[in-house]
């Protein structure tokens, strides 16, 4: 993030408070990335240890959300932030909610992976799911990078990647449905795979949300619930 965001207040304490908050968001983002990595290893490779690790570690992300909410509340109460400071705090409050939910989705992937430990992975479209997982990891990393640097153009590129991931998700789900039709006996494990795939897709969507907050911070424009083209225009066109 542009150092100017934190270094130019007359109040050094204010600079420190804001810098602390953003640093903690990035730490939280790092934890969420670790959880997603572990969840994917559990799902794709059948790594039981990683699956259990994901399920038992989610509380750390939840605790960070609570801590950051409190820090933002203090800033609102004590500093009455305005303009870019206010947009930063709003972006943080929104982003940590999505990060916490991404943590929950990773935990769900881990749980589904534990259900599937004894299943034959060759029967399911695991290669496609692994590819989707890599795509989603890239999207999450890209969103966190965009947030760290408050880069609205990067945010648009990440949002575009999420559109591709959604298409990949649709294709996997179609295959899984066909699989269910062909072999009705495999309903329980395939449903677990559907849930896990669905969670990956949701992580992509929530990463896109974080990108929208980056654009809100940088451009002062609310780009939620509009088309990708409109979002790209707001993020890169003339500011006013």
């Amino acid at each position: 993030m542009d150092k100017k965001t934190f270094t130019q207040h007359i109040s050094q304490q204010y600079n420190d408070d804001l810098e602390h908050i953003v640093t903690r968001v990035m730490t939280m983002g790092g934890l969420v990335e670790q959880q997603l990595d572990a969840a994917l290893e559990a799902l794709v490779d059948g790594d039981q240890e990683k699956g259990e690790q994901v399920v038992t570690s989610d509380y750390r992300i939840n605790a960070m959300e609570v801590e950051l909410d409190e820090a933002c509340t203090h800033i609102l109460a004590r500093r009455q932030p305005t303009a870019s400071d206010l947009r930063l705090i709003m972006a943080v409050i929104k982003a940590i909610t999505d990060l916490e939910r991404i943590g929950d989705e990773a935990e769900r992937v881990g749980r589904m992976a534990l259900h599937l430990l004894d299943e034959d992975r060759r029967r399911s479209p695991m290669a496609e799911i692994a590819a989707l997982g890599e795509q989603i990891k890239g999207i999450l990393r890209g969103a966190l990078d965009a947030f760290a640097r408050m880069d609205s153009e990067q945010a648009v590129r990440v949002a575009q990647e999420d559109i591709k991931a959604d298409a990949q998700y649709d294709s996997i789900i179609r295959n899984l449905v066909k699989h269910l039709e062909d072999s009705p006996k495999s309903v329980p494990p395939v449903l677990d795979i559907v849930w896990a795939t669905r969670s990956l897709e949701r992580i992509g969507d929530r990463s896109r949300n974080i990108c929208e907050y980056v654009i809100y911070f940088v451009r002062g424009k609310d780009v939620r619930h509009i088309s990708f083209e409109q979002m790209a225009e707001e993020a890169t066109g003339d500011r006013r």
Binding site: Q8, S11, Y14, T82, A83, L86, R87
Partner: peptide, 19 residues
């Protein structure tokens, strides 16, 4: 003006960045 001012000088003043 208080959420998304057009001018950098406004932004600096209302956010306490005025030197």
């Amino acid at each position: 003006l208080f959420t998304n001012p057009a001018e950098q000088r406004t932004e600096d003043y209302i956010t306490g960045r005025f030197g």
